[in-house]
Design a protein around this nucleic acid. Structure first.
Ligand SMILES: NC(=O)c1ccc[n+]([C@@H]2O[C@H](COP(=O)([O-])OP(=O)(O)OC[C@H]3O[C@@H](n4cnc5c(N)ncnc54)[C@H](O)[C@@H]3O)[C@@H](O)[C@H]2O)c1
Ligand SMILES: NC(=O)c1ccc[n+]([C@@H]2O[C@H](COP(=O)([O-])OP(=O)(O)OC[C@H]3O[C@@H](n4cnc5c(N)ncnc54)[C@H](O)[C@@H]3O)[C@@H](O)[C@H]2O)c1
Lengths: 256, 256
DNA sequence: CGCGATTTGTGCACGTCTTCACAAGCGCCT
DNA sequence: AGGCGCTTGTGAAGACGTGCACAAATCGCG
């Protein structure tokens, strides 16, 4: 979760282009649609139906249509959506047209993996700088970037326009790092440290926490186990359970 | 999101103890409460009020009380919650009392970081095995664990009871790995690869996707930027916008 | 022993999200 | 040109989640 925008914003001089004020749930799904669309584009598809795109993205087709309708209907009835057009629209809405500069703070175990990850650049982000507090790490070069001391953050921020800060330090240091990021004007933070950050209004924080994900899975596992009154049918229940529409078999839409 | 339980499940022999069937949103917050509670316990607190715990966990106190009430009221009016008791309760509900074995598949960039992370053991999970398909990686030792070839998965799974599978392979391999995990009986998967997995009913999948998080942040950044069009009031609209209770200042509850 | 201060647990109203179901629109084929 | 099948876009209903506000419960103290 992140901070909230004031929902009942007044119609204050709404001469702005056309920011449709998307539902948060929709925003969270757009990136998934975008990835599915890129896959489709790469496999030569020119258009795609809501049904096809929905299964490729792992969602309900009605939901997908409603999501897309929020950003202004770029589909053609009887045909579907133009893949290229839709990619452009979503990227535009998400603000991915400008390559946003990302600052990564904490180049430890996890930070190294993130710094070496090429999945950022291909999605509209550019790691602009790496920071750490440990003098032993400062100067190290990763993927063409040199690790700088955290004290240099203000200077670097003045040069590059940092759009997003990523925190990969221990939890004990996370709040201070967040404060420093906010101080240099960063208004979006992705936090990997397992702690709650306190930030001023207007700053968005998203959190990724491994342990929480595992614990949620653990809960479901726990519950499944307590339901095992049924003998479980021996081994290969693999191909059983037609299930219906429920899950996923987006495979055919993307793969083939 | 993950797969769903069939909602309108028939009253199939429901003589189970007392699984309260928590709302999914509540389940997702329990780990956060748990972490806050551990922090409190470590700092010597015996009891905590809903208000205190709520701020420590970054949520609304009413929400917290409702969440806790779902698992059967272990608080005392006029006093608060007994920290130790609540920890026990939540851990019990989440099924953390048994140390669940985790299998990590894909020991690359990210997999290394995960394998070397000590935040698992301290939260009720034990990395039981590491797998990779690259012969060059097999045999490597990380944190006391030897990387095994993915083909050994069935044998290892027969020895250890793998509760959760973590996929940290490239997207192209993720579906196959998921299938292999399911084949050896894994019913909970945490997926780091940026793709939709297709799994049979009854298997839970959770996904962690960096790029999606960044893109969501990008959207908000984009929108914030487009709101700066209102020059009308002549400058620092920065500190405007009362907004309300929204944010956070859990700090004092944890840190100090 | 009773009273007031405090905090939990929850009924209720509200907002958000999801899903169904179908009219409106589009292209193709005859 | 007209009809037909397909697909989008959306109204409406229902499920779900949130937060207020307050009664019920408990403790401590006089
Ligand atoms: N490693 C993982 O797989 C993993 C998984 C989930 C969560 N996390 C979390 O991510 C964070 C980082 O984990 P890690 O394993 O990389 O830890 P780490 O100790 O390997 O790395 C932390 C790095 O942060 C640096 N640092 C400390 N204080 C700093 C400061 N004030 N300013 C700048 N840099 C500072 C340290 O010098 C170190 O290089 C932790 O909060 C951890 O809980 C890690
Ligand atoms: N590195 C990051 O910071 C990061 C961040 C977000 C997401 N991801 C995602 O996590 C995944 C892993 O990223 P990475 O940077 O570690 O990639 P990587 O290429 O460094 O590592 C992938 C590993 O998976 C192994 N592998 C490939 N096919 C396999 C198979 N069939 N069975 C078992 N192992 C197999 C490879 O041998 C390799 O060791 C990717 O999907 C990536 O998109 C990574």
């Amino acid at each position: 979760m992140s901070q909230h925008r004031h929902p009942g914003a007044p119609g204050s001089a709404g001469a702005v282009p056309a920011l449709p004020d998307l539902p948060e749930a929709t925003v969270a799904r757009l990136p998934e649609y975008l990835r599915a669309l890129h896959n489709l584009a790469d496999t030569g598809h020119e258009t795609v139906s809501s049904e096809g795109l929905a299964t490729a993205a792992g969602v309900n087709s009605a939901k997908l249509r409603k999501d897309l309708s929020h950003l202004g209907s770029y589909g053609t009835r009887g045909v579907g959506y133009d893949v290229a057009v839709l990619i452009g629209q979503i990227e535009s809405v998400l603000g991915l047209t400008q390559n946003r500069a990302v600052a990564l703070v904490g180049v430890g175990n996890l930070g190294h993996a993130l710094a070496g990850y090429d999945g950022f650049a291909s999605r509209g982000f550019r790691i602009a700088a790496l920071f750490d507090a440990d003098p032993a790490r400062v100067g190290e070069e990763i993927n063409g970037l040199v690790v700088r001391h955290i004290d240099e953050l203000p200077r670097v921020a003045a040069e590059e326009s940092i759009a997003i800060g990523v925190i990969a330090t221990p939890a004990a240091a996370a709040q201070q790092v967040a404060d420093e990021l906010v101080a240099v004007g960063v208004t979006s933070i992705l936090n990997f440290a397992p702690c709650v950050l306190s930030v001023p209004e207007g700053v968005d924080v998203r959190k990724v926490d491994l342990a929480i994900e595992l614990q949620i899975l653990s809960f479901h596992e726990h519950r499944k186990a307590s339901l095992t009154g049924l003998p479980a049918t021996g081994g290969s229940a693999l191909t059983a359970l037609p299930g219906g529409l429920a899950a996923t078999d987006s495979q055919e839409a993307i793969g083939t």
